[in-house]
Write a protein that binds this DNA or RNA. Structure first.
Lengths: 350, 350
DNA sequence: CTGTTAGCGCGTTCAA
DNA sequence: TTGAACGCGCTAACAG
C-alpha cells in the first residue's frame, strides 16, 4: 500500500507487475539487462498506476538534482530577465530545472543565496555585477560547478557581453559622422558595466587626440537621463553616449523639450536595445546586448561542467550596433541650442 | 570521514562533538529537549566543519522541499516578470525557494511542466491564461496545493487582476470627457484578459445606450497597434481603448504620424502601465495592474495552503487608473482627420 | 536527556 | 537475468 496518501511508490509497481522493485528500477531506467517481456509488464503497471519515480529520492541516491540555480541582482531588470529566459529555455531543453534567486541588489544576499541555493542544485549560474573581485574569487571556490555572467574568475567558465567593443563601435560611428566633442553619461561608478565603458572611452580618446569626451556622472534610469539634459546641452558636445537606453530616452525627451533637435543639434546613442528603443522619436541608435543568448550560453557552459568537461575560456558575446534615427552628421549648428559650437572645455569626473 | 569529497555529514559533526547523530539533529533543529551544554558543543563542531544539513536528505525525510514552482507562459513578458519578482521576494522572506518554468506559450507544456515541477516542490503557482477551463479544472486536481494567477477553479485559491473593473474605469473616464464613439483594439480572441475586457465593454454599452463601441481585432504588440491606425481613424471614433500599452503606443505613434492630434482629435488609453507609458508624447493614460503584488499575494495564498489553512475566495486586485496626457475632452473636430464626426456605424467582430 | 533503530524512496552493488 | 540487501543523509519514533 502506498505510504503517503498521494504518492505511489516503486513497490506498488513492483507488486502489480509481479517483480521486485529492483527490476522496476532497471526497467524504467532503460537498463538493457532486463527481459523485454518484463520491461513491458513493468511499463504497463507503471502507466496504470501513473507512477513516476520521486525526484527527491533520486536526487539523494544519485547525488544530483537535475536543477541549477540562477542568482540575479534584480528580477525587475530587463537584462536579467532576458538572461533568465534564455537560460531557462536552454536548460529545459536538456531536462534541467531552474531555481531562481533575487538578491535585491545586495552583495551579502548574493553570497548567501549562491551558497544556499547551491546546496539544493547541481550548480549555480551567478550574476553578481557589484561584488568585489576578491570576494567573488573566494566565493566561487565553494560553489563549483559555477558559471559567471559578465564577470570572470580564474578557472571558472564565464559568458560575457563585450561592452567595451560595443561602446567602441558607437564611438566609431559618431566619429565617422564628424563628431569631435562628446559626453558620456555614466552609470553606477564602480560597476563592471560602467568600468568597461570607461575603458573603451579612454582607449578611444587615446587613439583620437582630436576628440574630446567628457564624462558626466548620471545614473541608470530615465529620470537620471532627463536630469542630465541641461548639463549635456551646456557642455557644447554634439553627441551624447548614454550608459543605457533608459538614460538615453530620458535625455532624448528632455533635450527635445528644451528645443534641441535630435539628431540635428545633438546625436544620442543608448545601450541595450530595449524593446522600446525602436519606438522613440526618432528611433534610438543603440547597441544590443544579446542577453538571451548570454543565458543560453551560460547554460551550455554549465552543462559542459556537469558532464565533466574542463572549464573553457570566457565566452565574449559582442553586442551589435543598431544605427537608427538619433544619430546623424555633426550639423552646421553643432553645439546645441544653448551652447556655442566647437571644442568646449572638458572637465573630468570620477 | 566525509562520504563524498565535498560534503561533510551529520556523522562528522557527531564524532567531533562526541555525541550521537540524533543529538546533532536535535540540537541543530532547536529541539528543546537537549542539554544546553551539548547544544553549544554541537553548534561549535558544526561551525568548525561548516556543516549544513543536506536539503535533499531533509526533503526526503520531511516530505517537503521548501520550494514552490512557478509556471509562466513567457518569461519575456513584463507582467509575468513582475509577478515572478513579487513572488520570489515574498517567498524568500519566508525561506522558500522558487523553481521557474517557462511554458513558451504552449498549453501542453504548461500542463506537463506543472505536473513535473510539482513533484520536486511543495506546490505550484500556475499562470495559464490560455488553458481551456475544463482542462484547467482537471489539471489542478493532481497539483494541490496550487494557486492560480488570473484564473479560477473550484476550491483553488487564486489571485486575479480585475481587468473588468479597470476597463470600466477607463470607459467612465472617456465618457465623462464626452466621448460617445469609441473603438476597442482587442487582443488574443479567447484569452481571459481579452474576454474580461469584452465583458466590461458589453456591460458598459448596455448601460449607456448613447455610446457606440466598436471592436477592432488587433493584437498585443506595438506593430499591431500601429497597423490599426488607419482603421481607427476611419472609424470616426473619438477615443480608442487599446488591449494593452504596447498596442496603445503603436497606435499613438502611427496616428500621430498620420497627422492626427492626441488627445485633441483622438483620445487613447492603454493597459498595464508599463514603465515607458509615462514617457510617451503625450504620456499615456492607462491602468496599472499590480503585478508584483499579484505575485506576493500568490505566495501568501500558497503559504496559507502549506500551513494547512482552508482555501479562501479568490483575491481580486483592482488595477488603478492612471490618467495622463493621451486623454482629453471630445474636441470640436471630433472624429479625427480622415473621418466625419458623430456616430459612426459599428461592426461587431469576434 | 541521550543513543539506537527504523524508515523516507530510490539506484546499485552482490549473489543466486 | 533477477532478487535481496545496502546505503544516500537525515528526522523521528523508540528505548534506556
Amino acid at each position: 500500500m502506498p505510504r503517503g496518501p498521494k504518492g505511489v511508490t516503486i513497490n506498488d509497481v513492483a507488486a502489480r507487475a509481479g517483480v521486485s522493485l529492483s527490476t522496476v528500477s532497471r526497467a524504467l531506467n532503460g537498463n538493457p539487462t532486463v527481459d523485454p517481456a518484463l520491461v513491458a509488464r513493468v511499463q504497463q503497471a507503471a502507466a496504470e498506476l501513473e507512477y513516476t519515480a520521486s525526484p527527491v529520492a533520486r536526487s539523494l541516491v544519485l547525488g544530483r538534482t537535475q536543477t541549477v540555480a540562477v542568482v540575479v541582482p534584480d528580477l525587475g531588470n530587463p537584462t536579467f530577465q532576458a538572461i533568465l529566459r534564455g537560460l531557462s529555455r536552454a536548460a529545459a531543453a536538456d531536462d534541467y530545472h531552474v531555481l531562481v534567486a533575487d538578491s535585491a541588489e545586495s552583495v551579502d544576499e548574493e553570497r548567501a543565496l549562491a551558497a544556499t541555493t547551491r546546496r539544493r542544485t547541481d550548480g549555480v549560474i551567478l550574476c553578481a555585477p557589484r561584488m568585489p573581485q576578491a570576494e567573488l574569487d573566494r566565493l566561487v571556490g565553494g560553489l563549483r560547478p559555477v558559471v559567471l555572467v559578465n564577470r570572470s574568475s580564474d578557472d571558472v567558465p564565464a559568458v560575457r557581453a563585450d561592452y567595451r567593443s560595443a561602446l567602441t563601435d558607437e564611438l566609431d560611428l559618431l566619429y565617422a559622422l564628424g563628431h569631435r566633442s562628446m559626453v558620456f553619461l555614466s552609470g553606477v561608478a564602480r560597476s563592471v558595466a560602467n568600468t568597461s565603458r570607461l575603458e573603451a572611452i579612454a582607449a578611444f580618446a587615446a587613439s583620437h587626440p582630436d576628440v574630446a569626451i567628457e564624462e558626466l556622472p548620471c545614473g541608470v534610469d530615465f529620470d537620471a537621463g532627463a536630469a542630465s539634459a541641461d548639463a549635456v546641452i551646456s557642455s557644447g558636445a554634439t553627441a551624447a553616449l548614454a550608459f543605457n537606453d533608459l538614460v538615453a530616452m530620458g535625455l532624448l525627451s528632455a533635450v527635445q523639450a528644451a528645443g534641441c533637435r535630435v539628431p540635428d543639434d545633438l546625436s544620442v546613442v543608448g545601450f541595450d536595445d530595449i524593446p522600446f528603443a525602436r519606438y522613440t522619436s526618432p528611433p534610438l541608435t543603440t547597441a544590443t546586448v544579446p542577453a538571451a543568448q548570454l543565458g543560453a550560453q551560460a547554460w551550455a557552459r554549465m552543462r559542459g561542467l556537469l558532464e565533466g568537461e574542463a572549464p573553457r575560456d570566457p565566452l565574449w558575446l559582442r553586442p551589435e550596433l543598431v544605427a537608427r534615427g538619433t544619430t546623424g552628421p555633426r550639423g552646421p549648428a553643432a553645439g546645441g541650442v544653448a551652447a556655442d559650437s566647437g571644442d568646449a572645455e572638458t572637465n573630468e569626473f570620477d
